[in-house]
Design a protein around this nucleic acid. Structure first.
Lengths: 191, 191
DNA sequence: GGACACATGTAATCGGTTACATGATTAC
DNA sequence: GTAATCATGTAACCGATTACATGTGTCC
């Protein structure tokens, strides 16, 4: 999902600024889809504006820089729908953790233990963040939207499942790391 | 995980060629970690060779092009271990499907149904592929390695969980798509 | 005769990140 | 005083993809 579409999608949920789009993309809802930086968001917004898929209004606020608030246009909404109706690219799941896991015998039990710990902590943190969106309640939008809620619940479910699985199977990986250590040393020395 | 490390990792499992590395990275084991193309693999291998982290031997085979078979060196193995001991980057999970799901009310039930169908088919296909690695058995390596097996089982578990969850909750999303459709039209028309 | 698998490699391009530039306000 | 938050934007760079170039053998 390119930044352009992500911007359009976020703007379809309500008017915002480039600054806030970045926060959505890496903290809030939408953290599933992107992880965009200013360097990609601002040019994307400029381009969308040139294409008349969004409009801008400048809100001067005393003391602070001018906020450029973007709104999606009808054409923008149509373009978003068009993009979402295209064949969906497969989900991407890239796990540096699993690469470490695969080399458990080479890395030894201490490293594996700390890797598992860090990995689980990461998942817990992500889960907490997702839960916050749902529980937000009072805030004006996202958590209340049923479709967003469905997606968030799907994400939460996946995370909880992973944590359960790790809890139950981490010992096995740690044993592999401990047992294989000698083998790895031997085979490395043998070569 | 950059292509360089992926190449090193694959070579740590056994000698291969650039051509086969690509296959590993998008079909076999390792499909979790990368999705590299020739355009990145060949330059990476050349660089690794220059750094003396791998060596090459050319195997002439009559009729076919020369195979350049790469082997990891001791320095390469050390570099891989060093890379794997660095702080692990968080897992990346990017789901174009969930973006579609979030806009279910805007897209309507037919689209959502087909999106769910395609998504589940994709997961099933991925699962089949992973199962093949494990069940390979007779082939000389990966499926038998306990750490690889652990990682594969983790992946299989996640996929099965997702499928179960989708099976049980797809109806709810389809309803949201159906019910919300009118709202979306109204709100779109109202603006 | 055409498509596909094997096999290596380069050049153009692209999408995106990082770092930089600027500057006021608020909280510690 | 110093760090963080708000806020926008550009330029340099980078990693990777896409498309291209080349060539044989095999299967349908």
């Amino acid at each position: 999902m390119n930044v352009r579409t992500i911007c359009l999608a976020i703007l379809a949920m309500g008017d915002t600024t480039g600054y806030e789009i970045r926060k959505h993309s890496l903290e809030g809802d939408f953290s599933y889809f992107a992880d965009a930086s200013y360097g990609s968001i601002y040019p994307a917004l400029a381009r969308l504006q040139a294409e008349e898929l969004v409009t801008v209004r400048e809100e001067a606020q005393p003391g602070k820089p001018v906020r450029k608030v973007y709104s999606i246009t009808e054409a923008g909404r149509a373009e978003l729908i068009r993009a979402l109706n295209e064949p969906i690219a497969p989900d991407v799941f890239r796990s540096p953790f699993l690469l470490v896991a695969v080399f458990a015998p080479l890395l030894g039990p201490q490293r594996i233990r700390s890797a598992i710990e860090a990995h689980m902590a990461q998942i817990r943190a992500d889960r907490k963040q997702l839960e916050a969106i749902c529980a937000d309640g009072d805030s004006h939008a996202q958590g209340d939207d049923p479709a967003t809620r469905w997606a968030v619940e799907y994400g939460l479910h996946c995370m909880s499942m992973k944590l359960d699985y790790l809890e139950q199977n981490r010992a096995r990986l740690e044993e592999i790391a401990a047992g294989g250590g000698e083998n790895a040393s031997r085979s490395a020395a043998a070569e």
